[in-house]
Write a protein that binds this DNA or RNA. Sequence first.
DNA 1: GTACTAAATAGGAATCGCTACAAAATGGGA
DNA 2: TCCCATTTTGTAGCGATTCCTATTTAGTAC
Lengths: 141, 141
Amino acid sequence: MEKYAKLLKKHGIKVTPQRLEILKYLNENHNHPTAFQIFSNLKERNPSFSKTTVYNTLEMLKAHKLIQVLTISESELRYEFDNKLHHHFLCKKCGKISDIDVQCPFFEKMLDSEYKVEEVHGYFKGICTRCSKEEELKSET
Amino acid sequence: MEKYAKLLKKHGIKVTPQRLEILKYLNENHNHPTAFQIFSNLKERNPSFSKTTVYNTLEMLKAHKLIQVLTISESELRYEFDNKLHHHFLCKKCGKISDIDVQCPFFEKMLDSEYKVEEVHGYFKGICTRCSKEEELKSET
DNA sequence: GTACTAAATAGGAATCGCTACAAAATGGGA
DNA sequence: TCCCATTTTGTAGCGATTCCTATTTAGTAC
Ligand SMILES: [Mn+2]
Ligand SMILES: [Mn+2]
Ligand SMILES: [Zn+2]
Ligand SMILES: [Zn+2]
């Protein structure tokens, strides 16, 4: 827990129990959770945990580039602690988001372009392995 | 207008005035509009134009892969008629979305992978040229 | 330890993009 | 023309996010 406190201090962010909990949750859950998933999980242990605090904290962590916000879903934002460059795959059937370990080769070029690039997102969408197999089984009957 | 009708017929979609209007609007406005922008523009000429029709039609066009849905914004979906592979840049200041004419080099590889890829999205986010210059001018005062 | 103060949190209301639903309109075929 | 399936419309509803304000917390000075 001390490492999260250090991280926050390093960025000049005041350390609070709620912020530590959110950081810990993101670090231990690499499934790109929604704000609501974070909220409801933390609320279980601390019933007074507030939804607003989750949104405020995520906003602040994002501003300090400590977390990444994914707009891969059409209906809600997904968050992740890991902020090194990688792509994502969204299964349209089960909703699972997987990491794809490649880096955009245009990133460097874009840095030299007329645009001031701050974020790079690579999203693939389709059907995941598990769901594809399930579909095959169904069609065989 | 006849070309839109042909396009719809080719895909087995029944031709209606509303669908033609939406296709025409998307073809003539390459600024990746929101559903609401489409709706309010078409409503000006035809006051009974319905929001639901816009969403239904966009959903149908998307299902037939006639249009692309962009999840680049954090708050709303953007639509475009052009469905050939290209990337996008979102300016966080003015909200403008620009086309970046590159193709994801991982697309082919992903097609051979365990995933069944149906969509590829490449998003860059930051500050556009115009907004960067405006910022410079401000700081010079 | 107490008092003061600014920042953070909690809880609820409000907003907004999108969807669901049912009634009315449309339009092609008998 | 009449029928019936499809489409459109208008409204209500939903869910993710934001806004607002009272309360709590935590740091500082006395
Ligand atoms: Mn990831
Ligand atoms: Mn485009
Ligand atoms: Zn799946
Ligand atoms: Zn801009």
